[in-house]
């Protein structure tokens, strides 16, 4: 699935990159983008309005893999382990968030950007008060070893 993005996709990724560098979203830093096919983003653990402060002071790494048909298809977004402990994030870094998937129950839209995805993930962390993994985490990780999270859809 991670073949080289088409010319249209390349142009769009270039535009997103330009935007990002001009106005980077809060608490996010683009640490690798020289290869336009993969981005690595560093995410600061957000200051949470609620107690306990689960992720404050921590840093996580997100890997963005653009698909060939981006943005008609969603990018593949995962945390580089160790991933934040969260009921919607598996220990292998796979994330359970509807905007990252298309198809029947998916919420991806080509009008979404990596900027918006990163912000959604930070607010997902900020609102969490339950330091737990999803149920069946170990089984899931064993089953999904080396596979894309999109394959579960």
């Amino acid at each position: 699935m991670s073949r080289t993005p088409t010319a249209v996709a390349q142009r769009r990724i270039q535009s997103e990159l330009r935007d990002w560098l001009q106005h980077p979203p809060d608490g996010c830093r683009l640490v690798q983008y020289d290869d336009l096919h993969t981005w690595i983003i560093e995410l600061q653990g957000p200051e949470s309005p609620c107690q306990p402060q689960l992720y404050t002071g921590e840093t996580f790494r997100l890997r963005i893999l653009f698909s060939e048909r981006y943005p008609l298809e969603p990018p593949e977004v995962t945390f580089v382990p160790p991933s934040p402990v969260h009921p919607h994030i598996y220990s292998n870094g796979h994330i359970c968030l509807d905007i990252l998937y298309d198809g029947h129950n998916g919420g991806w839209s080509p009008a979404l950007t990596i900027n918006k995805v990163a912000l959604s993930l930070r607010s997902m962390l900020a609102s969490n008060t339950d330091p737990r993994r999803p149920p069946g985490d170990a089984d899931y990780c064993a089953r999904m070893r080396g596979r894309s999270p999109k394959e579960t859809r």
């Binding site: 008609l72 029947h104 009008a111």
Partner: peptide, 26 residues
């Protein structure tokens, strides 16, 4: 037009829910 046609055809490929297709803006 190109983006519309990509958006619409992707939706049609993914099944009958294309009948309920909404504006790409989330």
């Amino acid at each position: 037009k190109d983006c519309w046609s990509g958006y619409v055809q992707t939706a049609i490929d993914s099944g009958p829910s294309c009948l309920d297709l909404r504006c790409p803006d989330p």
